[in-house]
Simulated assay, not measured.
Amino acid sequence: MTRTTNTAFDTRWATNADLPALERLMKRAIDALQTGLLTPEQVAASHAIMGLDTQLIEDGTYLIAVRDGIIAGCGGWSNRATLYGGDHSTSLRNPALLDPARDPAKIRAMYTDPDFARQGIGRLILDGCERAAARHGFASVELMATLSGERLYATAGYVPVEKVEAVVDGIAIPLIRMQKQL
């Protein structure tokens, strides 16, 4: 098991035993951290396109930050074509394997528990995922950012590639596809 420590948070790769805590954390993060950036209707609709992708845990590529036994944040990297979406958003999923020689790895499902926001957890997890992707031969990464995550990613060197909208039951949710060279 790979472990790192930064600002009193340990990181480790998630296991199936973490699933219930991760699901609770993601729901809290979606509901709380997008407030003020999206309408209440957009926040509610976001649950249809965001959430837990257990493929990341099965692949051993989902990193969690823990302090005192509490999961404070999570996020992963993937060598699969899926850019975003959870287990329930099947139309967004593509399990095809990427070629590190030509494809960017995907940074996926980044969430911080609202009680731990603005404490460097997102950056800690992002750095760990980027290092892991680079160790697996990837020269670049890409992600689909929410408005609440855009600033973190821009500060970490990601550049916007395109702005898109995911539409759920007629409600448009703004997203930004971003990339970075490792």
Rank of each mutant, 00 (worst) to 15 (best):
T2K: 10
T5L: 12
T7V: 05
F9L: 01
T11K: 05
T15Q: 14
L19M: 06
L22H: 09
R24N: 06
R28K: 07
D31Q: 08
L33G: 03
T35L: 11
E41Q: 15
A45H: 14
A45K: 03
S46G: 12
A48E: 15
D53F: 09
Q55T: 05
Q55G: 03
L56C: 10
I57P: 10
G60N: 11
G60V: 14
G60R: 03
A65Q: 06
I70W: 14
I70P: 08
W77Y: 02
N79Q: 12
N79E: 11
T82I: 01
L83C: 08
S91Q: 07
L92E: 14
R93P: 10
P95M: 09
A96E: 10
L98P: 05
D99Q: 04
A101G: 09
R102I: 07
A105V: 03
I107W: 02
R108G: 01
R108E: 01
R108W: 01
A109C: 02
D115I: 08
F116K: 00
Q119V: 00
G120I: 03
R123H: 11
C129N: 02
E130V: 11
A133S: 10
A134H: 14
S140C: 12
L143D: 01
M144P: 00
L152T: 08
L152H: 07
A154P: 09
A154D: 13
P160V: 07
V161R: 04
E162F: 01
V164E: 02
E165W: 08
E165G: 08
A166I: 08
D169R: 13
D169E: 15
G170K: 03
G170L: 09
A172D: 09
L175R: 07
M178W: 01
M178Y: 03
Q181F: 11
